[in-house]
Amino acid sequence: KDKDIKNISSTTAPPQDENFRQAVEVYEKSIRPVPSLADLERLSDCLDHYGKDALLKAIDRADYRGRRSMGYIEGILQSWEQNGYDDPEGEHGHGKADGPRPAKTAGRHRKKAFRFDPEAERRKWANEKSGWD
């Protein structure tokens, strides 16, 4: 790349690249206050490939879901590129497509832990014969 991004932040981005400066600023506010060099390079690549609007929406969605990483943002963008943009209920895509993930709901169907209650057991077996009589 011809961009020297070693010391770029939202305040030091080259003025001629306003889109990159905006993307870095949103990334700093939503994802990580001090982006790494690798993250800046990946931001630049995503900006070139997907455009400013899609990148900013992906950063917003990653922040909303609590998944604050550049890899997650890239995954969102790749998914949108393959399957189309999923924004069923609103500007930021926080609708049904952003519902709970299967890994988070898997525990809901587990059996509850067995809690032993000695008094309940005594009442249950109070009228039973031992069988040893």
Rank of each mutant, 00 (worst) to 15 (best):
57 K>M: 15
78 Q>K: 09
13 A>Y: 03
130 S>A: 07
127 N>G: 10
123 R>N: 10
130 S>V: 09
71 G>K: 08
80 W>Y: 12
24 V>F: 10
49 H>F: 11
30 S>P: 01
132 W>A: 05
105 T>M: 10
118 P>D: 01
12 T>R: 11
85 Y>K: 06
25 E>T: 02
114 F>N: 04
83 N>G: 11
81 E>W: 10
118 P>I: 00
31 I>F: 08
115 R>L: 07
12 T>Q: 06
67 R>P: 06
108 R>E: 03
49 H>A: 13
2 D>H: 15
1 K>H: 13
65 R>E: 09
8 I>K: 06
1 K>T: 13
57 K>G: 12
71 G>L: 02
78 Q>N: 07
88 P>W: 06
36 S>L: 15
49 H>E: 11
118 P>Y: 01
73 I>Y: 14
111 K>V: 03
65 R>Y: 01
10 S>K: 05
40 L>Q: 12
66 G>P: 10
25 E>C: 02
69 S>T: 07
112 K>N: 07
72 Y>D: 01
102 P>F: 11
130 S>F: 13
20 F>H: 07
91 E>R: 04
36 S>Y: 09
95 G>N: 04
117 D>L: 01
47 L>R: 14
72 Y>S: 07
89 E>H: 05
125 W>H: 03
56 L>Y: 10
36 S>K: 11
46 C>T: 02
14 P>N: 11
34 V>N: 15
58 A>T: 06
121 E>L: 05
16 Q>V: 04
43 L>H: 15
110 R>F: 00
126 A>F: 08
52 K>G: 11
91 E>I: 02
70 M>L: 14
52 K>M: 14
24 V>L: 10
75 G>W: 03
43 L>Y: 15
46 C>L: 13
3 K>E: 14
83 N>E: 08
3 K>V: 07
9 S>A: 10
18 E>I: 08
81 E>M: 13
17 D>C: 04
15 P>Q: 08
119 E>Y: 02
96 K>M: 05
80 W>R: 08
120 A>N: 09
11 T>I: 12
85 Y>N: 04
83 N>C: 14
46 C>E: 10
20 F>C: 08
114 F>I: 01
90 G>P: 00
61 R>I: 00
33 P>Q: 04
27 Y>K: 06
53 D>I: 12
18 E>Y: 15
33 P>F: 03
8 I>Y: 13
41 E>C: 11
17 D>E: 09
70 M>Q: 09
36 S>W: 12
132 W>F: 14
17 D>S: 05
48 D>M: 05
26 V>L: 06
2 D>K: 15
88 P>F: 01
93 G>E: 00
76 I>M: 12
121 E>I: 02
47 L>C: 10
34 V>R: 08
79 S>Q: 13
21 R>N: 09
110 R>N: 00
96 K>I: 02
18 E>P: 12
39 D>R: 05
96 K>T: 01
9 S>F: 14
28 E>V: 01
52 K>S: 15
114 F>A: 03
